[in-house]
Every structure is written in structure tokens, then in C-alpha cells.
Simulated scan of single mutants.
Amino acid sequence: MLKPLCLALAMSSVALLAGCETMPKTTAESTENLQLLQNRTWIATQIGNTVIQTSPQARNIPSIQFDEATKRVSGADGCNRIMGSYSVKRDTLQLSQMASTRMACMNNNNIDRDFNDALAKVTHYKTIGKTLQLLDRYGNPVLKFELAVQPR
């Protein structure tokens, strides 16, 4: 009789501790995450598992900005300018009404196509210091960015 009781108590403790581990972010953490996301220029460093190497002199460097006041997203995909709207709650991010210019781009290794394909998968985001990760619905990073260094 004692063994089943101890086993039930141990199982309850494990379930309780596991539940605590997956608690949602606090309001303060969510607010900080949101403040880091918006009103900044983010330069793409990785699409999926592919590292992006761009020259600072290059035009239309893959980048993204989230404007807090207008809830508009803009940037470049490595070839074309992109724009649209976004909504954000805690760690979820929804991009909508995305559009882009249609310039002919040669020799860019399809970065523009891969960038836009990755954007279409975004459902969540995570900011860590000067790094932004856009995640798919499974929590996998589809795009990684670093905060742009502004010249003085």
C-alpha cells in the first residue's frame, strides 16, 4: 500500500515541476522582448541553416524593421524592398499583406527567394540582446538577424 502511494506522490511532484517549467513569460519579459523588436534595423545573418555574407556597401542588404507606431514592417530581401503589416502578442508575430518591388536580380544565389519563403513561415520571434530570431510554428529559427550598427 505504501509503494503505490509513494509512486503516486512522486508522479504528482514531477507533473507539478514540469508544469512550472513551461510557464509563459512574465509581462516584464514580454514587454522587453517587444521593445527590443520594434523601431530598430535588423540585418539578416542567417536563413535557415545558411549563413548570409553581405558587404556593407551592397545594396538592398537583407534586413527588416518593425515600426511600433504604424505596425508596419519594411526592409529588403537581398534584391527587392519588402513591406507589409504585423501584429505581435507576447512572443507571437504575424506578418500580413506582404508585398515587394519586382526588380531583376542576378547572381544573388536566390537569397531573395529564400528570405521571402522563410518570412512566410514566421509565427514567433525571440530577441536576445542584439540578436533577433524569427521562428516557425515549431519553434525552429527560420531567419536570424543582428542589430544594425549605426554610423556616428
Rank of each mutant, 00 (worst) to 15 (best):
T70H: 11
D136Q: 02
L134M: 12
A44D: 00
A18E: 03
L119Y: 06
P4R: 13
T27V: 08
A148H: 07
N110P: 04
P141N: 08
T26G: 08
K71P: 00
K130W: 05
E21C: 07
M11R: 15
N110T: 08
L95R: 05
V142K: 04
D77M: 05
S74A: 11
H124A: 09
F115D: 03
D91V: 08
N107G: 13
E21V: 05
F115G: 01
N140P: 01
N80Q: 04
K121N: 03
N140M: 12
Q35V: 06
P151S: 07
F66E: 03
A44P: 00
D67Y: 10
L2C: 00
C6I: 10
A18T: 04
N39L: 04
F115V: 06
D91K: 05
R113C: 00
R40L: 02
E21T: 09
V142L: 09
T70E: 09
R152F: 07
A15C: 09
M11G: 07
D114S: 15
M23C: 07
M83D: 11
S13E: 09
Q35E: 10
Q46M: 15
T123G: 06
C79N: 08
K25A: 13
K71T: 09
A44L: 12
D117S: 12
K25C: 02
I61R: 12
K121C: 00
Q35L: 14
A8R: 14
Q57G: 06
K3T: 15
V51K: 13
L143V: 05
I82S: 04
K25G: 02
D67I: 09
R81A: 12
Y125D: 10
R137E: 14
N33Y: 00
A104D: 05
S55V: 06
T131P: 03
A8L: 13
R72T: 07
S63F: 02
I64H: 06
S55H: 11
P62W: 11
A8F: 09
K3H: 14
A10Q: 10
K3V: 13
K25H: 11
P151Q: 05
I111R: 05
K3D: 14
I64W: 05
L132N: 04
P56N: 09
T50A: 09
C79K: 08
Q57M: 09
R81M: 12
D112Y: 01
N109F: 02
S63W: 01
A10S: 10
L135E: 08
